[in-house]
Amino acid sequence: MNAILQTKGLMRMFGGLTATNNVTFSLPRGARHALIGPNGAGKTTFVNLLTGVLAPTSGDIFFDGQNVASWPAYRRARAGLARTFQINQLFLDFTPIETLGFALSEARGEGAQFWRRIGTHRGVVDESVDILERLGLGDVLTRRVGLLPYGKQRLLEIAIAVAGKPKALLLDEPAAGVPEGEREQILQVIEGLPAEMALMLIEHDMELVFRFAKSISVLVQGALFAEGEPAEIARDPRVKQVYLGESEVEHHFEARA
């Protein structure tokens, strides 16, 4: 079994609405996978179920061989399942160095230490700086996060998620809202992530998807609709059909057909 993350018959209802419908899904170790689907397909709900923000109505979630469906979010994170958020979830009155130092301390299991000030572990500080430099945040180490440009904040989202060297990382629209000129930097950061880290990209931007993904799943109305290699998905007329009306995406399929 070479999957790092798996679901079996995963269901989530919101009242009468089925947001996630019987999803059986598998993410191999070191994957470069994309999860796509039209607006409202339940992509973010699926990520929230995987990471423990939401509890499934039924079904199982296996991470690294263990059934984590009933684990709280923080335990899954500690086990090595990280994510970024579609809408920035940052600590606005921290600085990037504090943010990373905090994330690293938690990953090292030192987050409950109350008897020493932060920054005394030289190794944590150095590693925080290294990660921030690598992700293009070296020039804003001690600026307040809330004052950073949006593109830098998006990069910090990724920096926090990779700080703990997760086994799997779920990237929820990492480039959402980022101005054209700064997108390339985010793409390069994602492409530069370690090969052994399984990545699942949730994305609307087909250019990004087809550039990044080795495999694609299509989610429609909460259910898995199609799975395969990018070329297969691009050729699949049913996939094209569900995207009808979303002209930008449609165009992308046309170009590849």
Binding site: R75, R83, E106, E110, G111
Partner: peptide, 29 residues
């Protein structure tokens, strides 16, 4: 004063700032 400047203290401020993210980092909120 020691406590609020410690890793524990900063995790509290993080929880206050954004509990959702704190959990996603692995903080037992």
């Amino acid at each position: 004063r020691v406590i609020v400047h410690s890793p524990f203290g900063i995790s509290l401020r993080a929880i206050k700032g954004n509990a959702l993210r704190a959990r996603a980092i692995g903080v037992p909120v």
